[in-house]
């Protein structure tokens, strides 16, 4: 039997539940953006955007006038929450490295069981785009990675040692995939939750490193 697993929206919803009230959170480009609409506004999360926005509001949908002076890191039009502010780039990254980010939500090519993260460059490529990922990954107090459990070719993305060029070492604290939620503690992957309808054994088989499944529970999703 082949695991079906979670949709992107379900993965994003599950990650959104991980954020605690009043956290300051940086959201990377790509898959992480799917998380924002699922975050309960009552939690009063402050979103940080690397280009100097503290208190970034939701993306602005639809056509109309685009304000190029208020774009997200992914260059999409956004709003500013009441009480939000702007800083220059050095201060924006001082905030990230300086320990003010409770969490960063980042996409990943690979995550290793020691917490190493790869998300900027493909193996053998001449170059890649780092953007703010290296600074944010080493600065945030928690790095929450969101990614599919396997590559399109069926290779595990959760591995014992990175084979992709690293972005930062020993930083990832939790991984949210289509098959479950995997915490990283003391150099080990711990399957905390498995997606409904997926067997624990299937997750182990799809993981390129030892997976601790002693305390795995089945994820509960909203109806």
């Amino acid at each position: 039997m082949t695991a079906t697993g979670l949709t992107l929206d379900q993965m994003a919803w599950r990650l959104a539940q991980e954020l605690e009230p009043d956290w300051v959170v940086n959201v990377g480009i790509g898959m992480p953006l799917a998380v924002v609409p699922f975050v309960d506004p009552a939690k009063d999360i402050i979103f940080h955007s690397e280009n100097g926005i503290i208190g970034m509001g939701p993306e602005l949908e639809g056509t109309g006038v685009v304000d190029n002076d208020l774009l997200s890191a992914g260059k999409r039009p956004v709003s500013l929450i009441p009480g939000g502010s702007f800083v220059h780039h050095a201060d924006s990254f001082a905030l990230a490295r300086g320990g003010r980010l409770d969490a960063a939500i980042l996409g990943a090519y690979q995550v290793a069981s020691n917490g190493d993260l790869a998300n900027w460059k493909l193996p053998g490529a001449r170059t890649g785009s780092i953007g703010g990922a290296m600074d944010i990954a080493i600065g945030a107090r928690r790095v929450l990675a969101i990614m599919t459990h396997k590559t399109r070719d069926g290779e595990p993305k959760l591995v014992e040692r990175l084979t992709y060029p690293p972005t930062a070492l020993g930083v990832v604290t939790k991984v949210f995939t289509d098959l479950g939620v995997i915490a990283i503690r003391e150099g080990r992957f711990i399957l905390e939750e498995v997606a409904p309808g997926v067997e624990v054994g299937e997750v182990s088989a799809a993981t390129g490193a030892e997976l601790c499944t002693e305390k795995t529970c089945i994820m509960s999703l909203p109806r």
Partner: peptide, 24 residues
């Protein structure tokens, strides 16, 4: 160059410093 490193190298340049030490 990592974005935060680029920012801090420029800030150091403007502040008369020779460089910065970053964990990035």
């Amino acid at each position: 160059v990592p974005q935060g490193t680029m920012a801090e190298r420029i800030r150091a340049g403007g502040a008369g410093l020779g460089g910065v030490l970053t964990p990035t």
